[in-house]
Every structure is written in structure tokens, then in C-alpha cells.
Design a protein around this nucleic acid. Structure first.
Lengths: 120, 120
DNA sequence: TTGACATATTACTAAATCGCGATATAGTTT
DNA sequence: AAACTATATCGCGATTTAGTAATATGTCAA
């Protein structure tokens, strides 16, 4: 495996404050349980707002607002069909981002379990 | 390239609400410009708190608090050396997570630029 | 011990934002 | 047109959290 300081070398030089702020803003969008829940639902396939209300248990206004945020960041696509709005995942990187974070959590949980086990 | 609905199939079935909340909490930690700035500095190599104060322009108490948050989530390691505390990146996934988000932003910026261009 | 320095923590204020209920907008049907 | 449905938006109370200044804790050296 590559060492951390070698990996750092292949990183681009200084990001501007504006770029860092942008990145933070995008992470913020993924930092809400409600939005992650919506994204998880969409990962199974495109859905309408009403469909997502049913799938997530969130209120309609809430789902709509969150979808607006996700759409604003181009994380999801929107297609209007009559009175319906069909949303879908717009960015394949979302799968990677979510998987990385989820695996990390699982890994940490196992580590914690192992530590607790070794302390008996 | 694999289609989105096929990728969905290989995803694990329903995460619990608690797991989603955990994932959201971890994204929250990456959603602060100050913390990203600190992480970017650490990606160039381990640093002390004072070093990070210099590198980021943030106040000492602030840096220390943010490092506490990052350490709490095991995003960074801490080694005490006398009165110093040397922090370093603990999780190689951070490189991937940040790169994915940054590339995404760059890509979007280019797309936007292209759209503006085509409209003249 | 005392002084100097590195880091952590606390108390406070200000800003952001979530969920909710109500309402507005817009397309469809009768 | 009026009624109905799907979606978007508004205003509000409540919660969360960043930044700051001040202070506490801990370590080394003289």
C-alpha cells in the first residue's frame, strides 16, 4: 500500500479558500440523514416525490425541499411528467462517496467491538 | 460503464436509521471549511497544533477544537511529544473522499463554463 | 518553585437550518 | 370553471454549531 506522504505528493497544490468552501458546502448536502435516506431510495431507481414520501416516511414539503437542495448541487436529475416530478441520481460518484463512508463506519464498529472484546 | 440501476443491485440492503445517521454525522465532520483546511494541511504531512495555526490562519483554540472533532471520528491520529501534539491523517479514505468531491466541483465548474460559452 | 510555552476546554454570542404546518403554483380531470 | 392531485415554497420555533476570548491543564527548563 502507498504511504500517506507519497499520496500527498500527487495531490494538487493549494486549493483556494473559495474552492474549499465549495467542497464543504457539498459535504454539507450529504450531512443530513433525511437527504441520505432520499438518496438511498433513489439508488434503487428513479422516484417521484410522492414515492419518496412513502419510501422515507418524511413529509411531502420536507422531501421536496431536500430534493431542491440535491438538485441545486446536481446530485440528482429532475424530469417533469405532467404534475409528477421524477428524480434520479445524477452523479455516479455518489455511490462511491456513500460506500466509502459506510464501509468506514462498519470498519470502525468492528474495531470498537474488537477492543471491547479484548478488554473482558 | 455500468448502469446506475445495476450498481444499485450490488448495494447492501436497507441501512438502519441509526446507520444513516452515523453516515450523516461523518459527512457533517467534513462539511466545515475550517476542518477541510486543516485536513488539507495534514495531507502534506503531520503537523502540530501551532503548525496548523500558522498554516491555516485559524486561532489556536479553534484549531484544537476542530482537531478534537476529527480525532473523535478517527479521521486523524494524535501523538503527544512533550507539550506538543502531532496530528496526522488516520484514514486513507479521506484522500479519496476529498478528491472525489473536488473533481466533482471542477467538473461542474467546467460544465457551467461550457454552458455560458454556448449561450453567447 | 517559578516562568514560559503548547494544548485543551469553557462560556458566550451569532448564524444557519431542520421539521412542521399552511399555503401557493401548476397540471389534469370532470 | 371548479375540483383534485402533485409539487414547491413560505414563515416559524427550536436546535445546533462555529468562532472568540479567557482560562485551565500539562510539560519543560532554569
Amino acid at each position: 500500500m502507498m504511504k500517506a506522504d507519497n499520496m500527498a505528493k500527487q495531490r494538487k497544490p493549494g486549493m483556494s479558500d473559495a474552492q474549499i468552501k465549495e467542497a464543504a458546502r457539498h459535504f454539507t448536502i450529504l450531512s443530513e440523514p433525511a437527504r441520505l435516506k432520499i438518496l438511498r431510495s433513489l439508488m434503487a431507481g428513479p422516484q417521484t416525490v410522492t414515492g419518496l414520501v412513502g419510501a422515507t416516511g418524511l413529509k411531502q414539503g420536507n422531501v421536496s425541499k431536500h430534493l431542491g437542495v440535491l438538485y441545486g448541487a446536481r446530485f440528482v436529475n429532475r424530469e417533469k411528467e405532467g404534475t409528477f416530478a421524477r428524480y434520479s441520481i445524477a452523479d455516479a460518484d455518489l455511490f462511491t462517496l456513500c460506500d466509502l463512508m459506510c464501509n468506514r463506519i462498519e470498519r470502525d464498529a468492528k474495531t470498537l467491538a474488537a477492543v471491547l472484546q479484548s478488554r473482558r
